[in-house]
Nucleic acid binder design. Structure first.
Lengths: 350, 350
DNA sequence: TATTTTCTGAGGTACGTACCTCAATTTGGT
DNA sequence: ACCAAATTGAGGTACGTACCTCAGAAAATA
């Protein structure tokens, strides 16, 4: 049988009460006694029964995701995964909610954060553009005892905070490498396009992309970033101009997770199938583009992993535990047509 | 507050005993009563407290992994992940062990399977080459009430069984696509090499690879598979011959997870850096090769996911639940130098 | 040594569910 | 309407841990 606290007490030669004090780090225990109990824990291989502990503690974790309103498909899939997690975690006494705020209004984000108190939520995952107000509000939130993780896009804070997301610099470098290898034998210019370059992740991706391209593929020249701002008309004009100026555009890199406007504008100005096109995030639009050949590769991060990882990190922090770093590493995925996966299921029912 | 069985009893207008009978599918309850309780479950949003249930039930899950002895690095990393899971799951009342058997002796595998009984283990994850004896032993194992998943490489069984692993056909197709795109402007032959072609996964990969190459890249010709059988000397001779016969080998595809012998033999016969080289599985050797440019891409499956997924599927089956198919989908990962990830940690401690 | 302070033990209740027994009630068949 | 069978209720114990109180023992201080 698996040893219980009772066995532990006997093994350590102390009472159940003292074992409890040590296990839950309560004050008023001599150092030698603590060590004796810890030694006994190792000796008999005691493992706390989490089910029993949760039950006795009646503990509940209430977490919230703070997401921008502006909704591209990637955000929608994040929301979908949060909904999934909401039901998947009920059994683990974890309540998950989310709220959305206008991403271009740091003031509103800050006031939203200010409204959160320890009796409302135990932890928050924040996805917001960088701004001093947001940083300060986050700081105060943490001081109030609410656990915080930076979600998907980091804030360059003064105080280190848990971050759940990919290294966007490396993601850009990944795109750069693929672009370089895909364009073998086709020297020329690379069109780089994004919704906006004020977002931190886009900037970092661009840096990583440029690094690889200039270092390893001098025959390719990345053009200055074109910003769409979601305006198809305007983007179309800019892009058309570029294509008439440069006849040697051999690749397109879409930095932002919103790819539709960019690709639509370009496809009206040029034949995409003759170029190598790389974009970000696994959206249904991008999947379709991969399947029909409009996209050659997609760099993605798994939204389900992001959400679950954020929850696990928050829960570890609430318990005063250290998150398992290796498990919370979010991978930079490369998707092409062949590894998209087809059916929803590969598990076969007997 | 979250509703309990007591609340459920009140809402359904029945006693606690009846609620218990319905929840645990015990016999002796009228159909109408069952339906009334189920309706109440939906109505009040009852969710069984898994912690309490586990505690009361005193349930323990004992799972075993059956792995081949022949150890390439991929297998070693599987073992490492099983060890991790062993400690990570103790809190969830799940015991994980593994045993290894000679992969080339179906008879021994079968007898190993025969020795497993429901009082020894609740579930088994089997990774074994295909053989009738193994299939039959698996069949009998399931009839004895032990839950089974096919692990990593599937058996083409008569009876459908849960399978945890990637679609190797798609994995090969992924390699084919990358090879095709990497070799743009370099028509020629592709050297395909594996430890053995008797393993099912290798055959499936080859099929997927060929499919893409012949359909989309007619300028590339994949040569017949070279088998190393772990014999460097012999492999070296064969490969040297090939390179002297064909001067236009522009790519190498290593089918099997053991890449060392293959790559070593080839690098002695030719300059690998002028060719596109694609291999399988994230081993430390392959990582190193990616970093130093000896490999251009690696197709991988995440061993940690494989192990955890197998455990989750087995646990679901033991509970009589259906596994969440989407969560147990194992992805085909593409690795290049830039998305390997560097440090172990991206979570920063406050 | 006397007194305070710190530490430890004993015993209790609670958490939500599983599973058991036995009696009471309802249902179905005749 | 009667009996047997099927169904339901009432009440109990158990799981392992958390957290509480209060008394008593040990250690530190004066």
């Amino acid at each position: 049988m698996r040893p219980t606290t009772k066995d532990l007490a006997k093994a350590a030669g102390v009472s159940l009460a003292t074992v409890d004090r040590v296990l839950n780090r309560r004050a008023g225990v001599r150092k030698e006694t603590v060590e004796a109990v810890n030694a006994a824990i190792v000796e008999i291989g005691f493992e706390r029964n989490i089910s029993a502990a949760n039950l006795a503690r009646g503990r509940r974790y209430r977490f919230e995701f703070l997401l921008p309103t502006a909704g591209d498909q990637f955000l929608e899939s994040l929301v979908a995964r949060i909904e999934e997690a909401r039901t998947a975690f009920v059994g683990e006494l974890t309540e998950v909610r989310f709220r959305r705020v206008l991403s271009d209004d740091p003031h509103q984000i800050a006031s939203e954060l200010t409204s959160i108190r320890p009796d409302t939520a135990d932890g928050i995952a924040i996805m917001a553009p960088e701004a001093p107000q947001v940083r300060d509000a986050t700081q105060r939130l943490m001081e109030r005892g609410v656990k915080v993780v930076q979600f998907v896009s980091g804030q360059p804070g003064t105080r280190p905070v848990d971050f759940v997301g990919v290294d966007n610099n490396a993601a850009g470098a990944t795109a750069g490498r693929l672009m370089g290898k895909f364009c073998t034998g086709h020297p020329g210019r690379i069109l780089v396009i994004a919704d906006t370059m004020t977002a931190r992740d886009n900037v970092e991706r661009r840096q990583g992309f440029d690094l690889v391209l200039t270092r390893d593929y001098p025959e390719l020249e990345a053009l200055p970033s074109v910003e769409t701002h979601g305006d198809l008309e305007r983007t179309h004009r800019i892009v058309r101009n570029l294509y008439s100026n440069f006849s040697d555009i051999s690749g397109v890199y879409v930095l932002s997770s919103e790819t539709r406007v960019a690709l639509q504008a370009i496809s009206e100005a040029s034949d995409l199938s003759t170029q190598q096109v790389i974009a970000h995030e696994r959206t249904s639009f991008n999947e379709e583009m991969l399947r029909n050949g409009g996209l050659d590769a997609v760099i993605a991060q798994n939204p389900g992993h992001l959400v679950r990882s954020a929850i696990r990190v928050l829960r570890a922090r609430c318990d005063g535990r250290e998150p398992i770093a290796s498990q919370e590493q979010i991978r930079i995925e490369i998707l092409i047509r062949e590894n998209l996966g087809h059916g929803p299921s590969r598990v076969i029912q007997p």
